[in-house]
Computed example of a mutant assay.
Amino acid sequence: MEKKDLRIVFFGTPDFAVESLRRLVEGGYNIVGVVTMPDKPAGRGHHMYQSDVKRYALAQGLPLLQPVKLKDEAFVEALRSLQADLQIVIAFRMLPEVVWAMPRLGTFNLHASLLPKYRGAAPINWAVMNGDTETGVTTFFLKHEIDTGDIIEQRKIPIARTDNVEIVHDKLMHLGAQMVIDTVDSIIDGTVKTTPQAQMLTAGQQPTPAPKIFKDTCRIDWNRTAEALYNHVRGLSPYPAAWTEIVDATGKAHSTKVFATGQPQAKPEGELPGTVTSDGRHLWVACADGRLEITQLQVAGKKRMPADAFLRGFKIEDAHCD
């Protein structure tokens, strides 16, 4: 089979998926349809937000479907009418069996982790937050349980100690896009091989979860170690961002996003977690076993700024972090 003869339907929503779709389109693969999320209101002006995948699909003149419900009869019939041989899913919703089982060659997913490690919605965040030094991408065929299908291929990259989640995201986006192309090619030429995830777990080992990130997940607990909080901050930067409350001398709490810190340091003996200190240019907060220098932050209602700019407009005396 030639790639121009393989009918592909692509499912995706954010920019992470666009890079793979772009490579497929520019590579001459036959994309007969694109499925993405419905438009949704954004901002105070009730502007309707279009997904990154939708904007790219429209620019390329690709047929587009935006179902509200994936089991909706009209959507299922519209999808079936595209007569896909293969479906590719990247950063989309969980598909019902009536959808993923439709193509004769199956449906495969690109996942931003080395499965079975970090199954779930936020694999890149959790890999960085947990201080991992390596991650990667996986292609696998879909089955009933989310992120559990047989693995087609994996590729690894190192996570540098100074990488935040945005840097790792972009590395994986490009690495994954190439692997999507290679996976499609192996399906076309009939050389694709798969490995059950259970075979990749040693005796007694369990898959690692990567649950969705919520606001409470992002809150900084200054009773944790400096190393843990250093990873916590970079694993959430720049989005959705770790946050804390800086309580000033009057007792007013200022909700503050923290985008970057220096490396963990020793702290003065007896300094309690959450204690804020400054020399007028640098801003430190004590943790359980050390302290972190906050270098980039954003107080609610203000712009993101370096710590020295923040200190010029904020009285830090007797402040602490909760």
Rank of each mutant, 00 (worst) to 15 (best):
D5C: 05
L6I: 15
G12F: 04
V18W: 05
I31V: 15
V34R: 07
G43Y: 08
H47E: 15
R55W: 05
A57F: 06
A57K: 12
L58P: 10
Q60Y: 11
Q60P: 03
L65W: 09
A74H: 14
F75G: 06
V76K: 09
E77G: 11
A84F: 04
A91T: 02
P103M: 10
N109R: 05
L110I: 02
L110H: 00
L114A: 03
W126H: 02
A127S: 10
V128C: 00
V128Q: 00
M129I: 00
N130Y: 02
G131Q: 03
D132G: 05
T133R: 03
T133M: 00
T138V: 04
K143Y: 01
K143D: 07
E145W: 03
G149D: 01
R155V: 10
N164V: 05
H169P: 00
H174Q: 13
G176L: 10
Q178Y: 09
V180R: 08
D189T: 11
V192H: 06
Q199G: 10
A203E: 11
P211N: 09
K212H: 05
A226R: 00
E227C: 01
R234S: 01
L236M: 04
T244S: 13
I246H: 07
T250Q: 09
A253Q: 10
K257F: 08
T261K: 06
Q263E: 11
P268T: 15
E269Q: 14
P273M: 12
S278I: 08
C287M: 09
A288R: 08
G290L: 08
R291A: 07
L292M: 11
E293Q: 15
V299P: 10
R304F: 06
A307Q: 11
A309S: 12
A309G: 00
F314H: 05
E317K: 15
D318F: 13
A319F: 02
